[in-house]
Design a protein around this nucleic acid. Structure first.
Lengths: 227, 227
DNA sequence: TAAAAAATATGATATTTATCACAAAATTTT
DNA sequence: AAAATTTTGTGATAAATATCATATTTTTTA
């Protein structure tokens, strides 16, 4: 669903666009379009040439990628955040696909105009740099943690990630199927099932289908640390 | 070994500093210092507050990180490249350590001055953005590949990485011990030994201690693709 | 250069996790 | 609401990889 985009006074402004002047914001408005997506809608697909900067204004999405029948969920991203800036600025095809995990609002911004702002407004440029830096640190942490933990530890870590970074509540609905959960933490759906059931039996979580309540945060943290 | 740093006319200039004007380069020279490191010297350590932008002018280094007795090599980086920009710009402690794998030359640049260039020179800023984007894509590829390959595939991939990205020759010396190799690709030193020996027996490579010659590139690529 | 320390190779065994098989439950479609 | 499809749970088994043990080789240090 396409909708009129108002950048000036937009309540979901990014930390970078907050530095744009009124005139620049009016320009941004002219060169961008906002789109609503429903849960499970594809926002963009891998291997498509990236000609827009994509701003996730509201919602949660997954970045995922396929190769020869195998699929992997690379990252789960919550608004507000830019998506695919690396591909866009390297004049490259998108490295991954993005699919919404909730209802989302997304702005598509013409690359060239966005680049103009980097040249015309150095506060804006610096904020973009900081945002790229933050993403890199998050990605590094993710790589490091994943490689040093067993499956139990990775599942515990992911439950804590949903609690601390995404929902900020101990009671939430896992926004992934067991199969997707497995593709996110590099394991099989069966292993996810088994270990979630085990956590439920041990009263570390209360689990009914996709509904989770974290009952023993401390223990979950210990499992996340030590596998 | 500390040495006089000449930025103007430096033969190892980064793609970003090439955009600096003569005056700015003289400024850069005043706020930066060049240091030689020998093989296995520590360039910086994790958990140290980062107050410099670090430019790897010449050489190869490893980025690595320790947690509770477990160590991981996160990335192998070849010059020219900036190191630790994310930590520096987020006013954070270094997430990882950097250790030289060859003789290296490194410039330490005062963070504040570097930031000034981002504000005063938008070509410079844009090049920094592009460099951060490239690093993110490399990191994503690395995460994705590692998660989808078995140990054999990861070892093949790493040998090809040394050939294609680092040494550009089919004959090279592995700049890691078997133990480090394992810490790079998330496996045990024994598995590395075994599989390298197997590759040698199968005449895919010619192996003597750390000396490798790639004999069958095509097959190595197939193993890298399909495990 | 000899002694000590570190790195490597390799067989045997243990552990972790994946895969297969199938039943049950939940969700979507008609 | 019934039928079809997708998702989930769980036991049995297989495969991949780690760990342990020990000998050998290489490198570093005295």
């Amino acid at each position: 669903m396409l909708e009129k985009n108002t950048c000036f006074g937009c309540e979901f402004q990014s930390s970078a666009t907050k530095f744009l002047k009124k005139e620049e914001l009016e320009n941004l408005e002219k060169c961008s379009v906002g789109i609503h997506f429903k849960k499970n809608d594809i926002i963009f697909k891998e291997n498509i040439f990236s000609s827009n900067v994509i701003y996730l204004k509201k919602g949660i999405i997954k970045l995922h990628k396929k190769t020869s029948s195998k699929e992997k969920i690379i990252k789960i991203v919550k608004s507000p955040n830019y998506l695919g800036i690396p591909a866009t600025f390297n004049e490259k095809y998108h490295y991954y696909s993005a699919t919404s995990l909730s209802d989302t609002m997304v702005c598509f911004i013409q690359k060239e105009k966005f680049k103009d702002f980097i040249y015309s407004n150095s506060d804006f440029a610096y904020k973009i740099i900081k945002s790229l830096c933050e993403n890199e640190i998050i990605l590094l942490e993710q790589c490091f943690n994943k490689s040093k933990k067993n499956v139990r530890g990775r599942i515990a870590e992911t439950l804590l990630f949903f609690y601390n970074e995404i929902f900020h509540q101990k009671k939430f609905i896992i926004p992934l199927t067991r199969d997707e959960f497995g593709k996110y933490i590099d394991t099989s759906r069966e292993s996810v099932s088994r270990i979630l059931t085990e956590f439920n039996k041990d009263r570390i979580i209360n689990l009914t289908a996709k509904n989770v309540e974290i009952l023993n945060e401390k223990l979950l943290e210990m499992i996340s640390e030590n596998g």
